[in-house]
């Protein structure tokens, strides 16, 4: 598995908790050039905004901020990590592979890196939306920006 860490349940837990407890990208942007979308959940807790800034055809910055559970918060933070530096095509491909993984379809694990830690989300079907809401919101921004 081409991840930058050893894939044991213990390590996967640590990655999730680390991104939830010490998020790298959890803030509201102070500068210009960001596009944002609100992400919320019908089961009424997760409630945050995602922000994306592009420069020269690539993602220059990705942020999120708001109230989240561990799964939605950590998955969105990991996504922000991975989006930065990617062009649209790479970003869509990454998101598509991740969503395929969550939906338990075939997926290309070579691009997922830390996002692989959410491979078991399907065990808790009620949390699938949490694991994907940040990702689908960012995908929506990317498509909007392309137009």
């Amino acid at each position: 598995m081409p991840t930058s860490f050893e894939l044991t349940p213990m390590m996967m837990r640590e990655v999730i908790m680390d991104h939830y407890s010490n998020p790298r990208h959890k803030s509201t942007p102070s500068g210009d050039g960001y596009v944002s979308i609100h992400a919320s959940s019908t089961n009424c807790i997760d409630d945050f905004d995602v922000y994306l800034k592009k420069e020269n055809g690539k993602v220059a910055d990705a942020l999120w901020n708001g109230v989240s559970c561990t799964i939605s918060g950590a998955s969105t933070d990991i996504l922000c990590d991975q989006l930065i530096g990617k062009n649209d095509e790479e970003a869509h491909y990454l998101i598509k592979q991740y969503l395929n993984m969550i939906e338990e379809k075939e997926f290309d694990d070579s691009v997922l890196d830390e996002a692989i830690v959410f491979m078991n989300t399907g065990k808790q079907a009620a949390r699938i939306h949490c694991a994907t809401m940040g990702w689908t919101a960012m995908d929506e921004i990317l498509y909007k920006e392309e137009k």
């Binding site: 089961n43 009424c44 807790i45 997760d46 989240s68 559970c69 561990t70 799964i71 065990k123 808790q124 009620a126 949390r127 949490c130």
Partner: peptide
């Protein structure tokens, strides 16, 4: 976080509600 707690309870077969219970 409440939602994580409810998922954990679910994994043990326990049905509890998490959230704002419609009383936001």
């Amino acid at each position: 976080f409440a939602q994580d707690a409810a998922t954990f309870l679910n994994s043990r077969g326990i049905a509890c509600r998490s959230g704002q219970h419609c009383a936001k």
